[in-house]
Design a protein around this nucleic acid. Structure first.
Lengths: 193, 193
DNA sequence: AGCCTAAGCGGAGCCGGGTCCGTTTACCAG
DNA sequence: CTGGTAAACGGACCCGGCTCCGCTTAGGCT
């Protein structure tokens, strides 16, 4: 994979698509018509699909920076809060982020379930969670051996089912259950993995 | 709501749609083309949509009986198992059921989030969970005050993110976390499946 | 400058979802 | 049996997703 640089016209089309898509997503949610985005960016629909083979890949590209910032926030929270407080705070932030982008839930599912390693967004999220979990384990509030991937998927599920703004409190309660689930103490019914 | 009986032709179309849809869903998953179902049932697409305004409503109708049986199973499990064992067992069964129907996840989301009380499937599920939780609380393994609706939504989220057959073990681990989350902090009866 | 070719372009075309409305028909009353 | 009417029908139609492939062009080479 030499990853040769894009031709100038391709590069400019790519950039224009990202800008236009960002506007469209902000205005109408991530479900908005891709044809319209292509038109607004002055390219053919074929070009859009060549650059971004799926809706999810476009959404991911548009929000990549914000996701990175979200992940960076994990370390920051650990600097200003106790591990026991940082984890819930980050989870709330995660859900807030997803809820802020209308229609994000489906995209998140695709990102979390995709086999593609191009979708390295997932790895970033997993790493952020791992950091938080490790700190929690070290501080004693989090049961050791909890798989960051499981927690990420749990958060994903919560977003899926309660990822719209009007479900914000359900999301918080489910986060509460998830936190309970990874906390030290109980040997719950059903055993462990 | 007089709920006047359907005209004979309407009734027969309705029934034929259900039969054909059941076959099609079993064969190709719940995402299959509705136009094809209408054609196979010998009705126009308009008729299908009048009877079942959304894909979800058709899926719900097709599987209503099976859902009822799933809910009945809660009481049965409580008769043959300890509450601490019945809850995990039922949850696994829930996920199995959803995973068996390809594409069920999206439908489940619609059912769980719908405002329609026509979708009383949700109430059945909630009631089944309430029964299990109550038994668990009485037996001491389940923290009191856990909202059955939250547990249902949690299960829904798990199905959403891990509801395909090839994710079965992720689903089980997430169920484990959820069970942990609703368990008493002290110590749950260790019994497992 | 001029050529060549891989890289890129973009829309026609097919498919499925969902709506809308003119047409058909069951069934009831007389 | 006949006529009237609400109920039901069903497909044409519009829209968006996505693919495929013939056309265009950037940009390296001479």
């Amino acid at each position: 994979m030499p990853d040769r640089p894009l031709r100038a016209d391709a590069r400019s089309n790519h950039d224009r698509l990202l800008v236009v898509a960002a506007e469209a997503f902000a205005r109408e949610g991530t479900q908005t018509s891709l044809k319209a985005i292509a038109r607004a960016a002055g390219v053919g629909i074929g070009t859009l699909y060549r650059r971004f083979p799926t809706r999810e890949s476009l959404v991911e590209a548009v929000y990549r920076n914000e996701v990175i910032r979200l992940c960076d926030a994990a370390a920051e929270l650990l600097r200003t809060l106790t591990p026991a407080a940082a984890l819930p705070a980050w989870m709330e932030r995660f859900v807030d982020f997803m809820a802020a982008k209308h229609g994000m839930a489906d995209v998140l599912r695709a990102v979390l379930l995709s086999e593609e390693d191009r979708m390295h967004t997932r790895d970033l999220l997993r790493a952020a969670i791992a950091t938080l979990l490790d700190a929690g384990t070290a501080a004693g509030g989090v049961r050791p051996g909890v798989d960051p991937n499981d927690v990420l998927m749990g958060l994903g599920g919560i977003t899926m089912i309660a990822g719209e703004e009007d479900q914000r409190d359900l999301a918080s309660r489910l986060i509460g259950l998830l936190l309970h689930g990874i906390a030290t103490a109980a040997e719950g019914p059903g055993g462990t993995a």
